[in-house]
């Protein structure tokens, strides 16, 4: 494995240089907190950032994305035939990605990139993207990633892992994509692999120690779906829920979307918009029947999907990476950690 030392004095220059070949995304401080955004013009990623309110999933899966478009003007060739909309799939890089967000993208990939179906919009964006993660030296209070299959220095899904060493960044180059990005920045000063790994291990150990909050997931797989589904606690969990979409929109692994056609004059376009299982509209049939008509059913669905159906279907752990965003943002403080532990410990009373 190759390691590169980057002097922080050279950081900005290198990032600027990479702009010649990459479109950049990264954390930006806004009035409402940190967001992962496209870094236009001379904006630099804010590497001192705190956890962002929204995850990085929007880099590959924007909240609204134009998929196809066509003309309704019958005098034109190809009218009424939907064609894929123009989009920019030139190389892009996300800088300062949280390791749990990178892991989350790998989980989302299980859905968008399968043997049978391949979502071209997501996959093309994925292939165009280089993921430059930043290890979290001081994990936040809400972080429970270590018990959710990730961690502050987790390398899964990353092309480069940066470790903040005060005056320098130590970059662990994990893939060829990562190497190409380092080259584009002009970062070349190679560091001793063994020594560097040891330095990262120290930070990692220290960071992991700071994560005190955890979930228990070991028994989820052996539970019977129906028993969990009929467990008595769902009404209590759902009572306070106001059925907004906050938890699903801040979640790095929530991948559901809705498809909408919009027409203006002679142009019509098909959009893919984030959707949320918290909304009654999510499951409303054209007949007017709604199989998930009550709040409790919807709340249960969200947790069952993340912590049971996903676990059973993919055998890759839970569909939660422990970022803690939903815990922090939920207006009524419904806490996935509590729900998860409740589900994990549930035994049906005879």
């Amino acid at each position: 494995m190759k390691f590169i030392t980057i002097d922080k004095k050279d950081w900005a220059k290198g990032i600027e240089k990479s702009r010649e070949t990459y479109r950049l995304f990264g954390p930006v401080k806004e009035k409402n907190g940190f967001l992962i955004k496209s870094l236009d013009n001379d904006m630099l990623p804010d590497m001192e950032y705190h956890d962002s309110v929204l995850s990085a999933k929007s880099v590959l899966f924007p909240q609204s994305e134009k998929m196809m478009t066509t003309s309704l003007d019958e005098s034109r060739d190809g009218h009424h035939i939907m064609n894929r909309a123009d989009a920019d799939y030139s190389p892009r890089a996300v800088i300062g990605l949280r390791p749990f967000d990178a892991k989350a993208i790998q989980l989302v990939k299980l859905n968008f990139d399968t043997k049978e179906y391949r979502d071209p919009y997501w996959c093309d964006a994925y292939e165009a993207t280089t993921f430059v993660g930043l290890g979290i030296n001081k994990p936040g209070f809400y972080d429970f990633s270590t018990s959710a299959g990730s961690g502050p220095f987790n390398e899964e899904g990353l092309d480069v892992l940066l470790a903040d060493m005060d005056d320098t960044y130590l970059a662990k180059v994990l893939t060829d994509k990562g190497q190409a990005y380092m080259d584009a920045c002009g970062f070349k000063t190679q560091a001793d692999a063994k020594e560097s790994q040891a330095l990262i291990d120290v930070l990692k150990k220290e960071a992991q120690k700071n994560i005190v909050s955890r979930i228990h997931t070991d028994k989820l797989k052996e539970k019977t779906t129906l028993e969990l589904h009929e467990a008595p606690f769902w009404d209590d969990i759902a009572f306070s829920c106001i059925n907004c979409g906050t938890c699903t929109y801040v979640c790095p692994t929530c991948w559901c979307f809705d498809i909408q056609d919009e027409t203006k004059q002679k142009t019509t376009s098909r959009f893919k918009n984030w959707d949320t299982c918290m909304s009654p509209l999510f499951t409303l049939h054209t007949t007017g029947h709604n199989p998930r008509d009550t709040k409790t059913q919807r709340v249960r669905q969200r947790f069952m999907h993340k912590l049971k159906y996903f676990v059973d279907k993919y055998d890759q752990g839970t569909m939660c990476v422990g970022c803690g965003r939903c815990v922090k943002s939920c207006p009524v403080n419904i806490d996935i950690r509590e729900v998860c532990n409740l589900m994990n410990a549930y035994e049906k009373q005879e």
């Binding site: 929204l54 106001i242 059925n243 907004c244 979409g245 906050t246 699903t248 984030w274 949320t276 909304s279």
Partner: peptide, 8 residues
Amino acid sequence: IRCYACRN
């Protein structure tokens, strides 16, 4: 982000 938390 149109989560509609304000409305709900």
